[in-house]
Design a protein around this nucleic acid. Structure first.
Length: 639
DNA sequence: CTAGGGTTAG
């Protein structure tokens, strides 16, 4: 067993206890008139949760050497916990230990819990070591404290000690300790142990299992646990919906949400947060708006409002985002960071910078992610000097060490400004290893500034770090082809074949009447495809009459050969946009989401189309947002 | 007296 802590020794040195005489006074009648009234008064204050009067009465009792019963002290301790009264709580602890009998395990557990709640783990441990009897609650309290502090090994070690001590864990213990499973093997082991002792039917244990399988990316296991349940509660539904939402399976999350409602459960804050996250991932602004209506019931919930804010930002609904942000009763660092990044992503970098200034005056400290957003805004607005300033001073001003993402923004910033050499220099100076994203950022800059040699170098780095990314191989092979380096073209194509890499076809989605319409290159299964093609042809004709020239030069673009010519007009985003213009009212923004990055021709096409039709078109590719308004794009032609 | 489910970048 563990060593006795200094704290425990101090506690043990309090006046000697007279064992075997529980509740010496309260239940044995008054010893004298004054003590009786004092005791009654104390009990009444505890019952009324009048902390300061209770403490006064307690000290008076201590001077007279009289003590109350365990239940009354427990009430007082709970009152201290509720008020966050640390010193008072400690003083009750001392009082109890100076009392003339051995405190009951129940009361000690209450004190133990108090220390855990006050985040005083050492005091809790000291008390735990001193306890003459530890029951399942004592063990669980400590184990749960270790888990929530991330001390997983200690938690598991204590589970073993508990079992060795002959104390049977209950479902409280298991639902806590499940969170401490570092790997899948351990999780499965614990899971089978839980089944053996027949505790898998508890809803808390179930949802802990679901959540932990999901955190390990084992969605099928999570779903199995869920499906095996006969009686489900809201928490379990929230676990499974959250599981899908967090593993970027928005469709399945929304599907489960529908099932949940059909099963008669009303969504709560946690449900709605996950549903919003799912809508965000799928860029379903309309679904998000519907959820917003439910959110109004919980309009003081910070996490939920943050999710709502993010949904509006990511789905291109900046007005919605602004209105949510301005109405929020309370804002934390996540609210500010979300809004700053959201403004920047939607092409409002100057507003983002202004908001950051406001944030600094608001008293909320920026964090790592906030600065990513700020640098992102600088790079999007071409604010080279500001970006460099924030980057160089972030450590000094905010105590944040620049990480990969910050370097990435700076590479983007320098690359966008054409300072490719400086961008490379920065990558070489990175304290952390550059990753595929870093090199891909440089690659984008090379593409825009037409630097083939550096592009080849960057693409090779990307391939090294992310060997399954088809787009990079194709980009590389196209660069070689453009430089007549046919042997290398063959070599790249060969290594793609060897690795079994095929480029996925371009696909774009648009939401019309709450339904998702998907357009895949070369797939004409959409029921209105003929009308759409006709409309698209007419549009191209009209655009050409005002100066649009289809751009077939795909050098430095990661497009397949066969996608270049005949299908140029039928790139999936063009079809989706045409469909959007045909079927959405003029005032509606046309929101497209696509799986591949937009090509230069579609980009030009969309800019001109937005102007000609006087429409706002938003295309969200896997990396960034393009807001097309009146002949220009928020990305500033850099992506 | 002890337990589960939610938010920001890449």
């Amino acid at each position: 067993m563990r060593a006795i802590s200094a704290r425990a020794k101090r506690i043990a040195s309090f006046p000697p206890s007279r064992h075997g005489r529980p509740t010496p006074i309260a239940s044995h009648g008054p010893t004298c008139p004054s003590s009786s009234s004092l005791l009654d008064e104390f009990a009444e204050h505890c019952h009324q949760r009048d902390l300061s009067r209770a403490m006064k009465a307690m000290h008076a009792m201590q001077r007279q050497g009289i003590w109350a019963d365990a239940i009354t002290y427990s009430e007082l301790v709970k009152c201290c916990v509720a008020r966050g009264a640390v010193e008072e709580g400690k003083s009750v602890h001392k009082h109890v230990f100076s009392c003339g009998y051995q405190p009951k395990t129940y009361l000690l557990n209450v004190l133990l819990n108090m220390y855990v709640r006050f985040n005083l783990l050492e005091d809790a441990e000291g008390l735990f070591d001193e306890m003459p009897d530890r029951n399942v609650v004592s063990w669980t309290t400590l184990i749960s404290a270790y888990v929530s502090k991330g001390m997983n090994n200690r938690a598991l070690e204590f589970l073993i000690l508990m079992l060795r001590g002959g104390v049977q864990p209950n479902m409280y213990t298991y639902s806590s300790v499940l969170r401490a499973c570092a790997d899948l093997g351990m999780l499965r082991q614990l899971h089978s142990g839980i089944i053996k002792v027949g505790m898998e039917s508890d809803v808390f244990v179930r949802s802990a299992l679901i959540d932990n399988y999901s955190k390990q990316g084992e969605l099928q296991d999570a779903l199995d646990v869920f499906n095996e349940m006969v009686t489900k509660d809201l928490g379990v539904w929230n676990s499974i919906i959250g599981a899908f939402a967090q593993n970027s399976n928005g469709d399945k999350a929304l599907e489960m949400y529908k099932c949940m409602k059909r099963a008669g459960f009303a969504p709560d804050q946690a449900t709605l947060t996950s549903v919003l996250r799912a809508s965000t991932a799928l860029a379903l602004l309309e679904v998000g708006r519907q959820v917003h209506v439910h959110v109004l019931k919980f309009d003081r919930d910070l996490i939920l409002n943050n999710a709502l804010l993010d949904m509006y930002c990511k789905c291109g609904g900046l007005e919605g985002a602004n209105s949510v942000f301005s109405r929020m009763a309370e804002r934390d660092v996540i609210s500010w960071s979300t809004m700053i990044a959201g403004l920047a992503q939607n092409g409002c970098s100057l507003e983002a910078m202004r908001l950051f200034e406001q944030m600094k005056h608001s008293g909320t400290e920026p964090n790592y992610i906030t600065i990513v957003g700020v640098l992102f805004a600088c790079s999007h607005a071409g604010l080279v000097e500001d970006g460099l300033h924030y980057f160089r001073s972030m450590k000094r001003s905010f105590g944040i060490d620049p990480g990969r993402e910050h370097y990435g923004c700076m590479v983007d910033l320098l690359g966008r400004a054409g300072k490719l050499d400086e961008a490379v220099k920065l990558i070489n100076e990175m304290e952390c290893e550059p990753d595929a994203v870093t090199w891909r950022t440089l690659l984008s800059a090379c593409r825009v500034h037409r630097n083939s040699d550096l592009a080849i170098y960057a693409a090779k780095q990307v391939v090294k770090l992310d060997p399954d990314d088809a787009g990079t191989y194709i980009l590389l092979s196209n660069i070689y082809a453009n430089n007549q380096r046919w042997e290398e073209v063959t070599e790249v194509r060969r290594s793609m074949r060897v690795r079994g890499i095929a480029k996925e076809p371009g696909c774009s989605w648009i939401e019309v009447n709450k339904k998702i319409h998907a357009f895949i290159l070369g797939d004409d299964s959409h029921p209105h495809i003929d009308g759409i093609n006709r409309h698209l042809n007419q549009t191209v004709q009209r655009l050409m009459s005002i100066g649009y020239v289809p751009d077939t030069n795909f050098v430095l673009q990661d497009l397949e050969d066969e996608q270049r010519e005949a299908s140029l007009q039928y790139h999936s985003e063009k079809l989706a946009i045409a469909y959007g213009i045909m079927s959405l009212p003029r005032e509606k923004t046309i929101m497209i989401r696509k799986n591949l990055r937009i090509c230069g021709d579609c980009h030009t096409f969309t800019k001109l189309l937005a102007k000609m039709e006087q429409r706002i078109i938003v295309i969200r590719d896997p990396v960034r947002y393009h807001h097309f308004t009146d002949g220009a794009c928020s990305c500033g032609d850099f992506w």
